[in-house]
Design a protein around this nucleic acid. Structure first.
Lengths: 124, 124
DNA sequence: CTTCATGTAACTACATATGTTACAATTTGA
DNA sequence: TCAAATTGTAACATATGTAGTTACATGAAG
């Protein structure tokens, strides 16, 4: 699949697609071929690759939009708040990453197949 | 405590402090007085106010920095991915908000007191 | 050898959060 | 009564990060 086709599916720019897919390529999850009939191809086992690996391959982007204003504050009040928040955030992050690890590309493919069959059935 | 003093503690601008504290005032958690010897004052019971209420009072800012690119995609692959991610995010969000609800201002005050005593002991 | 792709650098555009300025409104105290 | 201190708020400026765009080099296929 070309970057242009992927971009259309995602509503994104082909160059942005290449940027992101490049990270997956560096992680060995996809390969790219140039030229005529080139494009992207999955080069990993759907059953073993999970969402947590994708998150890691994409550079482990920050999960939370909120968080400590200052990691090492002098203010003792802020330190107490940070400690309380850190505990909660660490637990939530661990849970989220565990859930990510539970979902493989094969699971997504199966869910896609189910949706595809359902759409065809609905159209009749 | 004045916005200026709070701003210094937080390393933030007094107007930004007023903006944020204003939300807490609307939620009835603090009150403000103008003029000489004015400033902010907590107007709620430390034992009953918890971090989840603060999150709500501040307008329930988005918790996650990552998430679906498009909530209602036509693409069935994207739909399958969204469904998998939504499940994981909802669980993690529920856990985080539960943990927030567990922490009261009184808990923070107690932790502050502990840190304060510890700092004094270390200085001797 | 032309066409179609990726690879990548450089730049632009946009959204969001924060900071800043300015000033009105209010309260206190001399 | 008046000056100083403080919040309330609008308007504008700045910074940051993400996505988009342009441009062009590189490589592969027919």
């Amino acid at each position: 699949m070309t970057s242009e086709a992927l971009g259309k599916c995602l509503g994104a720019n082909p160059v942005v697609v290449r940027r992101t897919m490049g990270l997956l390529r560096e992680a060995g999850l996809v390969s790219a071929e140039r030229g005529h009939s080139g494009g992207w191809r999955i080069s990993a086992d759907l059953k073993t690759v999970n969402l947590r690996q994708l998150h890691a391959a994409l550079g482990e982007p920050a999960i939370f939009a909120i968080g400590n204003r200052n990691e090492t504050p002098e203010c003792l009040v802020e330190q107490a708040v940070n400690a309380a928040l850190d505990k909660a955030f660490l637990e939530a992050e661990a849970l989220l990453l565990d859930r990510f690890a539970d979902v493989t590309l094969a699971d997504l493919a199966a869910d896609f197949a189910r949706r595809h069959a359902e759409r065809r059935a609905t159209r009749e």
